[in-house]
């Protein structure tokens, strides 16, 4: 195990985040604050409680998930795409590092940054609404599983993309709709039957639902199902990454 390499990449990636802190940290905080003001304060006043939870508090887990997903994906995809784009990836590929170590370092750094942002948002939310966390242990577990899964997913996008447009296309055209339609701002019980059924195919629903349960003990689907689906997606991403490094796809000719 080349621990020095993992440490070096991790440190390098974290330094990059720190250098671009306006973009990596302040931007998500600002965006989330806007969501709280618009959905929580302005619209929320006219919305009744959902499942016994005040609307402003109800959207807190959803907003954190929204940021966690988008941050995980963008951190990891840019983290690996950028060296491919500039060509500096040659060094990683010629170093005595295994694929596993490369993934741990890049995904670890992407997940760390996403978790920091999630923590900041949780703290920011406190300024707008009051919320409780019933199951902090489960909350952390969901946070970790989600950020690792989506950092892996971002890593895959970063490997797959061969231009900046492709790098953004999946987050924009796939992830954002899934997040918005995954019960971030509402309970799927509020949807008509057909759309409720469609929502069940949305993986993000299970993440948000499980995560919200860890806050308020209410959920759209059972926690076990949430956990199962999250883990399944994690395994899928791991398998894809393993296959990529095994075949050298997009990395070696």
């Amino acid at each position: 195990m080349n621990l020095e390499a993992i440490r070096a990449i991790y440190k390098f990636e974290m330094a990059r985040a720190w250098r671009t802190k306006m973009q990596t940290i302040l931007a998500p905080v600002l965006t989330t604050s806007l969501y709280f003001i618009v959905f929580g304060a302005a619209i929320g006043r006219r919305v009744e409680e959902i499942d016994g939870v005040d609307y402003g508090a109800f959207i807190v887990p959803g907003l954190i998930m929204l940021s966690l997903l988008t941050q995980s994906i963008s951190n990891a995809s840019v983290g690996i795409y950028f060296p491919r784009f500039t060509g500096t990836i040659y060094e990683v590929l010629s170093a005595p590092v295994s694929a596993f170590e490369i993934v741990i370092a890049y995904v670890g750094a992407a997940a760390t940054k996403a978790l920091i942002v999630a923590g900041i948002i949780l703290a920011t939310a406190n300024l707008f609404v009051s919320y409780s966390i019933d199951h902090p242990g489960w909350m952390l577990l969901f946070l970790l599983l989600t950020t690792i899964t989506f950092s892996l997913f971002g890593f895959l996008i970063g490997l797959w993309a061969d231009n900046f447009e492709r790098l953004n296309i999946v987050p924009m055209l796939v992830v954002t709709p899934l997040v918005f339609l995954g019960g971030t701002f509402y309970s799927i019980d509020m949807l008509p039957g057909f759309w409720r059924a469609v929502s069940m195919f949305n993986p993000v629903l299970y993440l948000v639902s499980g995560f919200r349960w860890s806050f308020y003990g209410v959920a759209d689907v059972s926690v076990a199902v949430s956990l199962g689906m999250t883990s399944l997606f994690l395994v899928l991403c791991l398998t894809a990454v393993w296959w990529i490094f095994k075949t050298g796809w997009r990395l070696k000719s």
């Binding site: 080349n2 020095e4 390499a5 440490r7 070096a8 990449i9 440190k11 390098f12 330094a15 990059r16 250098r19 500039t86 060509g87 500096t88 040659y90 060094e91 990683v92 010629s94 170093a95 005595p96 590092v97």
Partner: peptide, 27 residues
């Protein structure tokens, strides 16, 4: 390896990039 193309990071400092290289090679 010193490749032919000038492929360097852009926004990092010289020190950061050589430190990364050393770590990558397990030193």
């Amino acid at each position: 390896l010193v490749p032919q193309e000038l492929t360097t990071d852009a926004f990092e400092t010289v020190w950061a990039t050589v430190s990364l290289s050393r770590g990558l090679f397990g030193k």
